[in-house]
Simulated assay, not measured.
Amino acid sequence: MIPPDQLTDPTVRAFVNAVNAGDRSAFQAVLTPDATMSDDGSDRDIAQWADKEIFSSGGHMDVEKESDGGLALIVDYRNDTWGEMRTAWRFVTDGGRVSRFETGQA
């Protein structure tokens, strides 16, 4: 596993740290105001998705590997709803913030 503080891209590092800390404010701060996301290929409302998949269910990311300069991750993701699953994450950043992320089973 790669410790979050050793992730290559600082914006992705901030995203992972916010998720793992369960910190809504830090999570929202790392996103652009018009950020978008998809889960398993379907676009979702970020606020609703994050509440369900991260904040109300103890979401946590253990990063297995990174590629594309740190903008693509393979993660062992776990939460109280689904348990643990291997997931892929891809990030688009803009000015130090995430403008889009896509996640799904790896």
Rank of each mutant, 00 (worst) to 15 (best):
F27M: 06
R24Q: 12
D9K: 02
P33T: 03
G70S: 07
H60W: 00
T103W: 07
V75E: 01
V75I: 12
G22H: 00
E66N: 03
I74H: 15
A21M: 07
D45R: 11
R86G: 14
I2E: 02
D23M: 02
D43M: 12
S25M: 11
D80S: 15
R13T: 01
R86K: 11
D39F: 10
R100K: 15
L31H: 05
A18P: 06
T11Q: 09
T81Y: 06
F15Q: 02
S38P: 10
G96C: 14
F91K: 09
E66A: 02
L31W: 05
E64G: 10
S42V: 14
S25W: 08
N17H: 11
V12G: 00
G69E: 05
N20E: 13
G22N: 01
G96S: 11
V30T: 07
G69R: 06
G70I: 10
D39N: 13
E53D: 04
D9V: 00
L73G: 10
A88K: 07
D51E: 14
V19L: 11
R97E: 09
L73T: 00
M1L: 07
R13Q: 13
G83S: 04
V98R: 13
F15Y: 07
A47P: 08
F15E: 00
Q105S: 14
K65T: 14
D80N: 13
Q6K: 13
T87Y: 13
S25R: 11
T103V: 15
E53H: 13
A35Y: 02
V98Y: 12
D76T: 14
T32L: 01
S56L: 08
V30A: 00
R86M: 08
L71I: 00
T93Y: 00
T93K: 01
P10H: 08
P10T: 12
H60F: 05
E102T: 11
I2D: 02
G70W: 06
S99N: 10
T81E: 15
G83H: 05
D43K: 09
A35M: 07
M37P: 08
Q105V: 11
Y77W: 02
D76A: 14
R13W: 07
V75Q: 01
M37L: 04
R97L: 06
D68W: 02
W89Q: 12
T93D: 07
P3E: 10
K52A: 15
G41H: 13
I2M: 03
D39S: 13
M85I: 04
E64R: 11
S38I: 05
F27S: 04
N79A: 06
L73I: 01
A18G: 03
R24T: 14
F101H: 09
F55D: 03
W89F: 15
R97F: 11
M61Q: 10
I2S: 04
G95C: 10
S67C: 03
F91V: 01
G69C: 07
E66L: 01
V63W: 05
G22E: 01
R90D: 05
M1K: 08
M61A: 09
T81P: 02
W49I: 02
T36P: 04
M1C: 12
S56V: 01
P4N: 09
S57C: 02
Q28Y: 09
P33M: 04
F91R: 09
F101W: 10
F101T: 11
D39W: 10
M85L: 12
D94Q: 15
R44M: 14
L71V: 03
D40Y: 07
E53C: 12
D34Q: 08
D80P: 04
